[in-house]
């Protein structure tokens, strides 16, 4: 066995080990996901909302909460304080009812990609709203009883 093949074998082993570790790690991450039905507090509800925002809800594909300008969609920094709960709900279900324009453009124009209606269920939408409110420094105005 020459040195080169030993090096390759070691390299392979290291890569394999790294892969396994990250797989196990991601599995344990996945386990920490809270199910909406298990939510006991408003903090947990907002946490579920964050997971939906980043994941299944696909909100983060076009929006950010950091206030950084995006070509795809308006920044959602502070919207939990700015917009009423009812309007936030409507924006997810019927996004074309009121289209917020890109005011950095002269004249302001709609964003290139229109927002599609969300595929999330009612309880999940409320969780996203809870997350938006919490990250805007607001009290979450959603009651856990509404999730049922």
């Amino acid at each position: 066995m020459d040195t080169r093949s030993i090096v390759y074998q070691v390299l392979f082993a290291v890569l394999f080990a790294m892969g396994s570790v990250s797989f196990v790690w991601s599995q344990s991450e996945a386990e920490s996901v809270i199910a909406l039905s298990d939510v006991k507090t408003l903090e947990e509800l907002a946490k579920v909302g964050e997971q939906l925002f980043e994941g299944k809800g696909e909100c983060a594909q076009c929006h950010s909460l950091q206030g950084s300008p995006s070509e795809k969609g308006p920044s959602l920094a502070g919207v939990g304080a700015k917009l009423t709960r009812e309007f936030l709900y409507e924006s997810l279900v019927k996004p074309d009812a009121y289209v917020y324009l890109d005011f950095t453009k002269l004249p302001p124009v709609p964003y290139v990609t229109p927002m599609p209606p969300t595929l999330l269920a009612k309880g999940e939408i409320l969780a996203v709203i809870a997350y938006l409110q919490q990250s805007s420094g607001q009290l979450v105005s959603i009651e856990l009883s509404e999730l049922k």
Partner: peptide, 8 residues
């Protein structure tokens, strides 16, 4: 009136 929170 229905979009914006008065405090904001």
């Amino acid at each position: 009136g229905r979009r914006l929170a008065s405090d904001w």
